[in-house]
Design a protein around this nucleic acid. Structure first.
Lengths: 241, 241
DNA sequence: TCAATAGTGTCTCTAAGACACTATCAG
DNA sequence: CTGATAGTGTCTTAGAGACACTATTGA
């Protein structure tokens, strides 16, 4: 770096230039009692105070080492758990999505096993799991309904060629539980034999014992845990297509 | 909106809060003389003045209606053409990628048919097509080498399950030209019959006549133009996997 | 005729779809 | 035994891989 550039940087102040607002938002999915749920928080501040919204917020310029950490920090604050899967979906920016002005948000998608969230009194704001099927009736803040749709779309298409839905289940799980997770995400019944053949041939599971049936009925099922290579794995053919 | 929120918005000023720098960058690919090329511009301003960089820059808060338009505007300024394909790849944000401070960039990928770019004297800065294979030797500005790698990776994976490479060819084109484009992108030879069967069965092409061979040798090839549904089409199975 | 390039016929192989079948538990 | 749930055997089907073949041009 030459002295010319040093001089430039010494006098550079980003506040001298108009800039959009920048935030990070996350759609956190889980599965509970045969329902897909998304995490929503009640906004404690303006704008849209009192409405339901996605967990999200501004980058902490002192603490966050990158925007993934921004997303992880908020996820930890709202759920108290490390997400086994966090992945970027898209970035949306336009002048109308936030009443404060030109605004850009990077949207993340997270999958976690169900964990109750009522007693997470990290702040005065409410945090709830809300059924995905019913979010559209909710009058969400900003364009967050649209963001949830984008994340859902991404999750669905990834479900067709990866095994990511494993992340919404508590370990260990049975193949039947896993198939139900896939079916809920794809919104479509899958053929049992094809499903098992596909998943087992991928070598992403380790058998770790046998379950007992909850209601005592039927043959006990094998229990599995996913291997860490899960997130890198992609099938060469889509499922249910 | 209640009067409380109106009061809040009337007094809101984004400059009161620390915020990252936000930019949009685009990796523009084309194909020319059996080589993949990316568009680079010489930086006319600090920081990294004089180094090669991706075309990109700040959002124009008055003109741009969203960040896609930001990318399109820059693409138009540098190449003079509308890109037939522009798609978001990812957003990168951390405190070290720009010497001016915490910086976030949304990365786009564009594909255009080859068009010479020397005489585009839109500014004093140089604009060139540079061979993709040689960019790593170039000491690019910022983390732009990394961004090019991310875009290349995305283009390769999309080439395996879509027909997007059609966008780097001038219309009309022959199947042999198209196969060569795929082979360059995937960096791997493809089997002629499989390639043709796959592409033709997808019904993405309309035959529009016959070519004459450049050097007068060999049988003339059929010419095709892609249909507009091209961008929405995805094969259910990856190619060359 | 030959060289060069375009395009096809057809067999094999892999993985999904369909669906009937067997297995193991509680009662 | 029955009912319920777990898990398998196996035939069919779609589409990629391999590779030898035929077709059409200019010289």
């Amino acid at each position: 770096m030459n002295s010319d550039e040093k001089h430039y940087l010494a006098h550079y102040n980003s506040k001298d230039y108009p800039a959009p607002i920048y935030t990070v938002d996350t759609v956190i999915f889980t599965l509970h009692e045969s329902e897909l749920l998304v995490l929503l928080v009640e906004r404690g501040n303006h704008p849209h105070k009192g409405k339901w919204a996605l967990p999200g917020g501004f980058v902490n310029l002192e603490q966050d080492l990158d925007i993934n950490e921004t997303a992880l920090r908020m996820l930890m604050a709202k759920t108290g758990v490390e997400a086994p899967l966090l992945e970027q979906v898209a970035t949306i920016g336009n002048p109308t999505r936030d009443p404060r002005g030109w605004s850009v948000s990077t949207l993340y998608l997270a999958l976690i096993p169900y964990t109750p969230v009522q007693q997470m009194l990290d702040s005065v704001t409410d945090v709830v799991w809300h059924p995905l099927n019913a979010v559209e009736k909710l009058d969400l803040a900003f364009d967050h309904l649209k963001l949830i749709e984008m994340a859902t779309q991404r999750l669905q298409s990834k479900t067709a060629y990866t095994a990511l839905p494993m992340h919404v289940l508590k370990k260990p799980f049975t193949l039947t539980q896993l198939q139900q997770a896939f079916e809920l995400l794809l919104n479509k019944k899958l053929e049992k034999k094809s499903f098992r053949r596909r998943i087992l041939n991928a070598n992403l599971l380790t058998e770790v014992g046998e379950s007992v049936q909850e209601n005592g009925k039927g043959r006990p099922a094998a229990l599995y845990e996913p291997s860490p290579k899960l997130d890198q794995y992609a099938f060469i053919r889509v499922f249910g297509g």
